[in-house]
Design a protein around this nucleic acid. Structure first.
Length: 346
DNA sequence: CTCGATCCCTGGACGC
DNA sequence: TGCGTCCAGGGATCGA
């Protein structure tokens, strides 16, 4: 029997984060934060600072920076949504959008299992809820994260440029020229670069595979080996895949915030990810899975031609070093009789 | 600098 | 049924 990947966590990549952001925008701007309560804090950069800094702040706007959710905060006393009176020392633009020096930014990365939701304060908290941001309307912005692979940090406004600078351009906004510049001479596997948020930000494992399938590029190919046409096609595929995914979530925006976040059915649109052993939508060849850049990668072996080689007999291939055994990846565990190999082969 | 491997964490799937 | 093991993944970190 084929190994199944039925458990579908919502894995927040660019489209999911964008959807969350759009949902939060409906309810959060203008709200003040009254108090902060925290559960486990090992995923928070400076837990104490949250309680010290956030109360008394007002949420000015919500943006997406790659996979980060960016809540811009300003002192609650500052003018709210209308343009402020002109000040001698600060421009109106600075104050109106919270960009003044006193501004602070709450950055939330959902990791794999993170959720942000707005609930009535009286409502029981979902398990693994570790962040409660009490609002001035009797509700709470809550952060829930089973695995705590997420991250929460505060970035003072003067540091925001540096914060943004650590990340690459947004996957939806990067120019074709920049896209090529970032990838054309890199010797890493294209899949690894698509996942590297410093190259450009927003893609995760799922949409990287989907984009590569769409562009008919094997995940293990070296970026430097891609032709100009292939790079252009890949850039286009990324845009198409991401925009389609965002559109697909459109109808569930309003209840995304307070729902469990699985209302979307984007997984029904997958053409490669999670489809090992199922026929390719283009050519009918069975989709395969390999470990590339340490991540499961799904591809059509016919549409996406492998870089020089190595069909694995076990059915699983690993680049580089395809000869090495896949087992014992962690903790020096002794390789057990390769169960994975047995299972994967049809 | 560049790139790959490892580790973090948990619940669910699966083997026995 | 129950217990143990494996696995998923974003990103920080380390080492080659």
């Amino acid at each position: 029997m084929r190994r199944r990947y039925a458990t579908v966590f919502l894995m927040p990549e660019l489209p999911e984060v964008e959807t969350v952001v759009r949902g939060l925008r409906l309810v959060l701007p203008g709200r003040g934060i009254v108090a902060v309560r925290l559960g486990k804090t090992d995923f928070i950069d400076d837990p104490a600072a949250l309680g010290e800094v956030l109360p008394g702040k007002r949420i000015v706007r919500i943006e997406r920076i790659g996979k980060f959710i960016h809540l811009a905060l300003a002192p609650a006393a500052a003018p709210a949504l209308e343009p402020p009176v002109k000040s001698a020392t600060r421009s109106a633009a600075e104050e109106s959008d919270g960009n003044s020096e006193s501004g602070i930014n709450l950055m939330v990365h959902l990791g794999m299992t993170g959720r942000l939701s707005v609930r009535e304060a009286s409502e029981p908290a979902a398990p693994h809820t570790h962040g409660f941001f009490e609002l001035d309307d009797g509700r709470e912005l809550r952060y829930t994260d089973v695995r705590r692979f997420g991250r929460i940090l505060l970035v003072p406004e003067p540091m925001m440029a540096a914060f943004r600078g650590q990340l690459g351009a947004d996957a939806l906004r990067i120019s074709v020229a920049d896209f090529r510049r970032q990838l054309a001479k890199r010797r890493a596997r294209i899949k690894a670069l698509l996942l590297d948020q410093r190259v450009f930000r927003g893609l995760g494992n799922i949409y990287a595979d989907e984009s590569l399938w769409q562009a008919r590029i094997h995940p293990a190919r070296l970026a430097a080996g891609l032709s100009g046409a292939e790079l252009a096609g890949l850039r286009q595929a990324i845009g198409q895949v991401l925009r389609a995914a965002i559109r697909h979530r459109g109808s569930s925006i309003s209840n995304f915030v307070d729902a469990e976040g699985n209302a979307g059915s984007y997984q029904q649109r997958h053409r490669a990810y999670g489809r090992e052993g199922l026929p390719c939508f283009r050519c009918g060849t069975l989709i395969r899975r390999a470990i590339v850049a340490g991540r499961s990668s799904f591809f059509c072996p016919r549409c996406q031609r492998a870089p020089r080689a190595k069909r694995a007999r076990s059915g699983k291939v690993r680049w580089p070093g395809a000869r090495r055994k896949i087992s014992a990846r962690r903790n020096n565990r002794p390789p057990k009789n390769s169960r994975a190999g047995n299972k994967v082969t049809a």
